[in-house]
Design a protein around this nucleic acid. Structure first.
Lengths: 151, 151
DNA sequence: TAATTTTGCATCGTGTACGATTTTATTGTG
DNA sequence: CACAATAAAATCGTACACGATGCAAAATTA
């Protein structure tokens, strides 16, 4: 029986898993300067784009459930990055709003993406390849999202 | 000041992070049948390929440190999937060896990769694209590994 | 309108990740 | 040989992920 497919090197899953962790690590020096973690950075990215979102809207954007986001947002509130308050229209909703400090971090974060891209690109990895990588991953995400719904 | 690079949609990091989590989720139904988690599956993949590795060898293969692997291996020992024993030649090394149960799981896992590939592939995502994805990711991993060393 | 269902969020328990520190064993050096 | 340096694991503390459950508010329905 041929079990070569079980070799780690032949699996598509493992490189994705490893790359994800390595990229988080690559962000770390930049995010350390802001005093935030990578998932916290993602939350800020969403709120910098458009402030005052419900927890539910954040879960959709980030594809994370409330069991992950609730404690994370609580930590960020304690760090004075954002405020959580119940909506008056619908008491079930919790509105997340950036504080002044949370807003001010944006200017400090402005050059992180290009810096990171700079550390990634080289002779072998062109910008074109990165763009194509993103396209394939976006398609893969859509595929996997529908799969999970049908399980 | 243009802050469009800070938009979540324009970041390469986020799709990798999301894909990684979605893929782990896609594995879950298969791994649940074996009673193991995704990182535990990765350890087994390595040991099925070649048994009797030190913890250090596993950290290199999986790019995980001992602070992650030690507790993970302990849990797997408690599940009777593997044995941990000090090497006699060098008492610092801990040799990881599969138990009968750990070895037997291999046959049950044999069709997981192709099943998973089946759930991924469709009109938009061809096998060629997946292979190219893996190549780009492998290059990216090498790039990021050297970056971290120089930090 | 009272009972039921749904929705939005929080909490709990378990399992990773990972920086930092500790412990023990081996190696290198004077 | 003594002793510092190095190496391999383990441990600790913090922060995610996530399945399962709980809970209160709103919507639905009988």
């Amino acid at each position: 029986m041929d079990s070569s497919q079980l070799q780690l090197n032949n699996q598509i899953c493992f490189p994705i898993y490893s790359t994800s962790r390595l990229i988080t690590k690559a962000y770390k020096p930049y995010l350390d300067k802001l005093g935030i973690t990578y998932p916290q950075y993602l939350v800020l990215l969403v709120l910098w784009e458009k402030d005052r979102k419900t927890v539910n809207e954040l879960t959709n954007k980030l594809m994370l459930d409330t069991n992950t986001l609730s404690p994370l947002l609580k930590r960020m509130e304690k760090m004075d990055l954002l405020q959580r308050k119940r909506s008056q229209e619908d008491q079930r909703n919790v509105i997340i709003e950036l504080t002044t400090k949370g807003n001010q971090l944006k200017s400090k974060a402005l050059h992180i993406p290009e810096n990171l891209l700079g550390t990634i690109l080289n002779e072998e990895i062109s910008l074109d390849k990165v763009i194509q990588l993103k396209e394939t991953l976006d398609a893969l995400i859509e595929r996997l999202k529908t799969n999970i719904r049908n399980t």
